[in-house]
């Protein structure tokens, strides 16, 4: 113990109601899931004034993975590695790919799904992938004795620039994924969001098609510190399009998304991120074509 440096109190609620009450009693406390993001900040320790900590790791509901008839429900403190053990039959390929590429096994054991969704300053790859898979999140708002629970589409947690929109006393408790499997998906990423956010681009893409006709076209482009873009117009534009796409269609989609990318940021986007995004989209569409051709 060091004079002048406060040792934060750690609250370890064992049930959801304890958790709600702790978060009400200590409104400035930091929710602690895996801690990988918080602890990797340069100014993490030592600091004179550290907030109290509410550890989420003792709440059983948050550590559970449930499978219902319609959904796969994942607790917020489920680690990436734990989620990967669910298996290929249950977990969408895109999600599996994203989790595996996010970190090494040693770190995956510590990163939690909820933590990766709720990072305050940096957007990681998982929200983009969950968004492409149209996942929903359960948000508990702890407002004094009153608690409100609601399900939101995951993309509603962030604005276009990737800023986290939940309030301080809002807590993500579960993530819900439908069992409908995408017909094509890909996750392309370059760079490390933690160490080199200015050059990193992550693209998650899921396409649902029926007999070579595009039904849903979900793409999410993430720049760790400046963008979380879901081009809804392209989704509408692609609905009902026949696969494979023609060169002109590919060019149109790329142009349309890139226009949105360039117009959605107040600051100048580093050229490497612009160029990578363009190439990622183009490559994803070529891959979609290749798959649709091979299925014929």
């Amino acid at each position: 113990m060091y004079e002048g440096i406060r040792s934060p109190a750690v609250h370890m609620p064992k049930t959801m109601s304890d958790l709600v009450s702790a978060s009400t009693r200590f409104p400035n406390a930091t929710f602690w899931a895996g801690g990988t993001f918080i602890m990797s900040r340069h100014d993490y320790y030592p600091t004179r004034d550290s907030n109290d900590i509410i550890s989420l790791n003792e709440v059983p509901e948050l550590k559970r993975i449930n499978r219902t008839d319609r959904y796969l429900e994942i607790g917020a403190t489920v680690s990436f590695e734990q989620l990967l053990t669910v298996g290929k039959q249950v977990l969408p390929g895109l999600l599996q790919m994203t989790l595996e590429r996010s970190a090494t096994k040693i770190v995956r054991k510590q990163i939690t799904v909820g933590g990766a969704i709720c990072t305050p300053q940096i957007r990681l790859a998982l929200p983009g992938t969950l968004s492409a898979l149209q996942a929903e999140v359960e948000v508990k708002s702890c407002m004094g004795p009153k608690t409100e629970t609601r399900w939101l589409e995951i993309n509603r947690l962030y604005d276009k620039k990737g800023a986290f929109l939940l309030k301080k006393n809002d807590l993500v408790t579960r993530i819900r994924l439908g069992f409908e499997r995408e017909d094509f998906s890909c996750h392309i990423a370059a760079g490390d969001p933690m160490t080199n956010p200015g050059e990193t681009v992550m693209l998650s893409f899921a396409c649902f098609h029926n007999q070579s006709v595009v039904d849903r076209f979900r793409m999410c482009i993430t720049f760790p510190t400046s963008m979380f873009l879901i081009p809804h117009e392209v989704d509408m534009m692609m609905h009902g399009t026949m696969l494979p796409l023609t060169t002109q269609q590919i060019e149109r989609v790329v142009r349309s998304i890139m226009e949105e990318v360039l117009s959605s940021s107040d600051h100048e986007i580093p050229p490497i991120q612009v160029e990578r995004s363009r190439r990622f989209i183009e490559s994803a569409l070529h891959e979609l074509n290749a798959q649709s051709l091979s299925e014929r």
Partner: peptide, 25 residues
């Protein structure tokens, strides 16, 4: 200080972890 060098691995309950990412509590 940010887990990027990977030079602080220890075994915590028999599993390898980056010790810079494990808080005392």
């Amino acid at each position: 200080r940010d887990g990027s060098c990977g030079n602080c691995v220890v075994l915590l309950n028999d599993e390898a972890v980056l010790s810079c990412l494990i808080p005392a509590f």
